[in-house]
């Protein structure tokens, strides 16, 4: 497989995952608009934007972050993440980028995968956000999620388990790993530990991650921070746990480069083992209490920040190993 094509599959996977992540967070936030106190809504937007690595649109530079989200209106904040084509991380922009990548992959991509992705893009581009806002914006975002799940199903059903699929999945899970570490870090900062107000509910984090029901079955409906962190970090059966993502990344890397998993280890495998070790060692992390938000802002790097940094480094190593390697390294021996 061409290195560029591998990169395109990888990025296709990343963009698909990114849209879904944004849509999940948005759906949760938009659903809660009806009955959530204003200060919690503002905190929700702040967390959502932080989780996506963005700042409030059109906010003056000198304005405090918390204040910026208090004065911003929900329509603008949601629209910026859904339909704003100038925002590179909006759903429509990511869908367009996914489509651009898929366009480069037409020879390798099953027609049904392309058609589903293309129809999704044509749908979101044609969506009238002001109209959707009036009838219920959460429905719009939900439809986006449904379309992405349909796409995942078609990918699952039509793509052979070759390197094209592996790079696609690799991209998805690297993206997921990065998002989940950031999300955990943010909840660790703003999550409800005592009774301070406003704060984030740990149950909401489980809901955003689609793990609430499983958590209740495993534990109780009494949601405790330590158990939530344990669930979303170490539980191998939770699709949005760090361990789940790492396990899948490992599987994909082994498939792509079987030799890389033998001695001497390939660079991506070494980096992944490092990440896996950090996740395994979260016993220490569990014992920690969450820092106060003000303290946390200036505190030294948290475990999740370290994991996020390692996740970014993993991406760099994957690119350097399979895509941007020097010519001399690639020549046949």
């Amino acid at each position: 497989m061409l290195a560029r094509v591998a990169a395109d599959f990888y990025w296709l996977g990343r963009y698909i995952e990114r849209i879904e992540h944004t849509a999940r967070l948005l759906r949760h936030q938009l659903t809660g608009l009806v009955d959530t106190p204003a200060d919690e809504v503002a905190l929700g937007w702040r967390v959502l934007y932080r989780a996506l690595g963005q700042s409030a649109p059109d906010a003056p530079a000198d304005l405090d972050e918390a204040e910026a989200f208090l004065i911003a209106d929900a329509y603008t904040l949601a629209g910026n993440l859904v339909e704003n084509e100038t925002n590179p991380d909006s759903m429509v922009s990511c869908w367009e980028m996914a489509r651009e990548n898929a366009m480069q992959l037409r020879p390798q991509l099953p027609l049904r995968v392309w058609t589903c992705l293309n129809r999704g893009f044509l749908w979101i581009r044609a969506c009238e956000f002001p109209t959707a806002w009036k009838v219920g914006p959460a429905a719009l975002v939900s439809e986006g999620i449904d379309r992405l799940r349909l796409l995942s199903g078609i990918v699952d059903a039509t793509m052979p388990r070759d390197n094209a699929w592996r790079f696609l999945e690799l991209g998805r899970f690297v993206e997921r790993l990065q998002h989940q570490t950031v999300l955990l870090d943010i909840w660790n900062r703003f999550g409800r530990t005592r009774t301070e107000d406003p704060s984030l509910s740990w149950a909401d984090l489980l809901r955003v991650c689609g793990a609430f029901e499983l958590y209740c079955r495993r534990h109780t409906m009494t949601v405790r921070r330590t158990d939530v962190v344990k669930c979303l970090v170490r539980d191998p059966e939770v699709p949005r746990s760090l361990r789940f993502a790492i396990h899948h990344i490992d599987e994909m890397l082994v498939g792509i480069d079987p030799l890389g998993s033998r001695y001497p280890l390939g660079r991506p495998q070494r980096k992944l083992l490092h990440l896996a070790a950090a996740v395994e060692a979260d016993v220490a992390l569990q014992g920690k209490t969450a820092p106060e938000p003000e303290q946390a802002e200036g505190a030294s790097e948290s475990v999740f920040q370290q994991l996020a940094r390692d996740g970014r480094a993993l991406h760099d190593v994957i690119m350097a190993s399979y895509v941007d390697y020097p010519v001399a390294e690639g020549l046949p021996s």
Binding site: M1, L2, A3, R4, V5, A6, N163, F167, I256, D257, Y322, V323, Y325, V327, E329, G330, L331, P332
Partner: peptide, 9 residues
């Protein structure tokens, strides 16, 4: 050669 994910071919 073509640059592939597993070296030059």
């Amino acid at each position: 050669y073509a640059r592939t994910a597993s070296g030059l071919k």
